[in-house]
Design a protein around this nucleic acid. Structure first.
Lengths: 214, 214
DNA sequence: ACTTGCTATATTGTCGACAACTTGGTGTTA
DNA sequence: TAACACCAAGTTGTCGACAATATAGCAAGT
């Protein structure tokens, strides 16, 4: 799926991006016929794309009625971060035992490059870097279910909230230190601590966002 | 979806049960044409059912090649229980704050009925009761994502392992005590403890299963 | 005016046929 | 014999048409 092959793949990704980026607004109805003309594919392809979006929890469907883009709400965001805390905490725990020394070294290098950017005054410790950090740890868990749940499901939703509620990326200043401590715990193969630190990290992140929203 | 409406709903559920119960064996290929004759529906319906099975992680699909039922492995079971530990732990934590007094009372009553059964010598503290207990706590979390991930995704897979690797339900003797302590923690609104106990409970369960397998 | 029931319309669900792709086998060549 | 190209059969992907269902609007009755 990294290389979209079929028309349904491409349509799924295009539609998902349209929704996540807000070009199709949250809560709006998805008409199959309308979309099929817009994307120049048959309704079967659109239906498959919508089905996949549904399993990502990006749209909701009712039989014989149709599909709507999910509505964003503060409550929904909180629930999302609760799941993130749970899953990514476990991912950090597993990563501490399952990552190879090489992978940990790479992770350290990534962190160092972030440090250089922050120090350089660019303060360009933006979403891309943060996401990359979390990605590596999730992959490091080597747990198929964790990986797919987070990558295919949760992360696009998180991004949708980020984009549409206009949060300017993750917290720049303190997040770096938190990342550093997590890497240190993984380096020490301290699974318990890695999980705890990751959960705190996400909890702080959630609190920060809630604060911005209020 | 509780009441399957469309043909795709019914086919999805029928197919899922066939796989979980082992009537379609793990690792086997799913031919769309073959299934469409077997269930007397069009291939479109079969395709939708298979798509949904894929998002449950019950089958795996490769573009232009087809779908296979997932293969069961000790490693897969371990990964599954890691996710369960993570998610159900969080569910217990949330349940401790989000369940109503009434729901907690019902949960206590359920536990009591289990106690009566165990005491009555029937030792009929079987899967149904165990599953019911966990269901209520998951629902008590009031977290949509948690609920759907566990109900639609994880639980059918767990059941598939249970049936096909022939594990005779959950541990009868000690599980009751663990359940009791979890309920007590929820009753005390002690979220922290509830999570910890639930995680232990699932961890023990995993260890018990691993022991049986070896 | 409000409710009730029907009808018309539009949308989703299902189907069978065709197109595109993978795979295994065959034959050719070095 | 090994390697390569190609062909054939079968499977999946895509399409347009038809059937079933929901929704909005109108009409009639109280």
């Amino acid at each position: 799926m990294n290389q979209p092959i079929t028309a349904a793949d491409k349509t799924f990704i295009a539609l998902r991006d349209d929704i996540v980026e807000g070009r199709i607004e949250a809560g709006s109805k998805l008409s199959e016929t309308e979309l099929s003309t817009k994307f120049a594919v048959s309704r079967a392809v659109i239906r498959e794309a919508i089905n996949r979006l549904e399993s990502c929890h990006i749209v909701e469907r009712k039989a014989n009625v149709g599909a709507r883009v999910v509505a964003l709400s503060p409550q929904g965001l909180i629930e999302l971060y609760q799941v993130r805390e749970s899953l990514e905490g476990m991912a950090a725990r597993l990563a501490a035992t399952n990552m190879t020394d090489e992978e940990i070294a790479d992770l350290s290098a990534l962190l160092q490059s972030h440090f250089d950017e922050v120090k350089g005054g660019e303060s360009y410790y933006q979403e891309a870097g943060d996401v990359d950090f979390h990605y590596r740890i999730i992959l490091g868990s080597k747990n198929k279910h964790l990986i797919s749940m987070l990558f295919d499901g949760i992360y696009h939703l998180v991004r949708m909230y980020r984009v549409q509620l206009g949060m300017a990326g993750p917290r720049v200043t303190t997040a770096y230190d938190e990342h550093k401590h997590i890497v240190q715990a993984i380096l020490n193969r301290d699974a318990e601590l890695a999980e705890m630190l990751m959960r705190r990290h996400i909890l702080y992140s959630k609190n920060s966002i809630e604060h911005k929203l209020s």
